[in-house]
Amino acid sequence: MTQANPATLHIISKSPTHQQLYRDIANALLDDDAILFIEGGVYACCGTEATALLAATNNIYALSIDAQSRGLANTTPAAITLISDQQFVELCCQYHKTLSWF
């Protein structure tokens, strides 16, 4: 298990209507960080409000079960990778730390 990656996995569980939260997250991101949308955060998969985040990093994921349960599985843009709980755990291992935003 490599621990060389110093980057952060940002776990976002609020929808993009929390604009100040999303501004803070955009400022907290470095380009090798990753974003994982969970719970209500997966609404960032539709609409344009998360555009600033999408521009800041290429590593964007959404928890599949949360997207599916909200009717978003088929509308998730290609730039966002849907992942399982198992892959969520793997991401946590790949990144040096996680930072939860809620």
Binding site: P6, A28, D33, H96, K97, T98
Partner: peptide, 17 residues
């Protein structure tokens, strides 16, 4: 500055928010 925030966060092993 806003621009320094990400670099600050990078320095830590654990962040609680």
């Amino acid at each position: 500055t806003q621009q320094q925030l990400a670099a600050l966060i990078r320095q830590f092993d654990t962040v609680i928010n």
